[in-house]
């Protein structure tokens, strides 16, 4: 099995996620897209872990993937809370409505 397969898949997922982040108006969809990007990273981590596998108790890549999953879960929690807050305050979760910082 070649290495580039998973890597290209990861790159594709990352770019799709990136597209979602930039193109979607709905904040929840933006969060979903961010999840895609994080998962792309996880694929990379696990794939490279597999490449350098020595047979010993060396699971660094997978450990990092787990950490990323945890961080992603936390991110979703906080992100959704922020989205709810925004919805409560503005009755809208459109990203481009949140432009208080514009000129």
């Amino acid at each position: 099995m070649t290495l580039i397969g998973p890597l290209v898949l990861a790159a594709f997922l990352f770019c799709v996620g990136l597209y979602g982040v930039m193109a979607r108006r709905n904040a929840v969809l933006v969060l979903i897209s961010v999840e895609l990007m994080l998962n792309a990273v996880n694929i990379n981590l696990v794939a490279f872990q597999n490449l350098v596998w020595t047979g010993d108790a060396d699971a660094t890549g997978q450990v990092f993937a787990l950490f990323v999953i945890v961080v992603a879960a936390a991110e979703v929690g906080v992100g959704l809370a922020i989205v709810f807050n925004m919805f409560r305050n503005r009755a809208s979760i459109n990203i481009d409505d949140a432009d208080l910082m514009r000129w």
Binding site: C15, V16, L18, Y19, V21, M22, A23, R24, R25, N26, L29, N94, I95, D96
Partner: peptide
């Protein structure tokens, strides 16, 4: 659902 940045997002991605 999609913002007006969609073309730019497509190109960049």
């Amino acid at each position: 659902l999609d913002s007006r940045n969609r073309p730019m997002a497509m190109v960049v991605s």
